[in-house]
Amino acid sequence: MPDIIDVKDLVLVYGDGTKAVDGISFQVQENEFFGFLGPNGAGKSTTIKVLTTLLRKTSGSVAIAGNDINSDSAKIRKMIGVQSQETVVDLDLTARENMMLQGHLHQMRGDALKKRVDELLALVDLTDVADKRASSFSGGMKKRLDLATTLVHGPRLIFLDEPTTGLDPQSRAAVWQYLEKLNKEGVTVFLTTQYMEEADKLCKRLSIIDHGKIVANGTPSELKREIGTDTITLKIEESGLEGQSARAKELLQQTKGITEVLSSDDGLTAYAKDAGFIVADIVRSFDASGIKIASIGVSSPSLDDVFLHHTGRRIRPEEAGQKPAGRTRFGARRPTRQ
């Protein structure tokens, strides 16, 4: 099957000279659930704006379902749905009016549109408040309505820019459910997120972007395997003897296969490839030295570790969660034209 998104050497330079996207290439297949991960300012939203015809690329090539982004933009707009990072619902209009307007702008009319709107309002659990103005909605309800408005015309491909940022865990889980359902029905999803858990759960494949460049590509498990190190966390029993923990750290460092040891308040953390095999060695050497182990655990790398490995930063959900979910102002600056 041909790629539904095909991006080659895409560059976008804003009017003030900011190179927000610096030569990225990637492909997304039809019906794939694709994740685009990156810290603040990495270039995620900028990429989405180019792929959805809102910003004109500086150079490179972009094709959506075989249509060139510059010459076939009208065709592209018919088949995509876009939820921007800033929640955009018309607060003076009711939920239903917001949906109907979006349908009308997609040339949908009459009963077919009405039926579709009812279906979608039910999908995002807004049926009860369908005829209330959006100004009375909570942040989560607005986000859900925004998502529903992007689906009215039954797009083949949807772009979602941090659709769950600022949502409480319940609403987030609900959005995940809708997205999985849509994807099962054949919709291709392009999702940006700062939640590693979300990317891990939903995305079949992802790219990590940092400073406008793609730094890693692959399925979540491939990416985790690639960085390859497991984490061993170990606690020793308090014996009251001086220097025990220093001795323990030394022992770990001497163990074959361990690449790095860190000590913190709640014990020791060691990194190793295939840690499962090493645990036995550790237990034996600690036994021989008379140091009692209180607990020992092995965990394989999380997507969080992958992210840290590639960007040198850790995205913390609470940090991402602090970003406002309501109306934020759009940048007033525009990009340079070719």
């Binding site: 809102l54 018919k78 995509i80 876009v82 921007s84 955009v88």
Partner: peptide
């Protein structure tokens, strides 16, 4: 423009 409505219209075939 500032609240993003125009951008939301612009990604439709309007």
């Amino acid at each position: 423009l500032n609240l993003g409505y125009v951008q939301k219209f612009l990604v439709t075939p309007v």
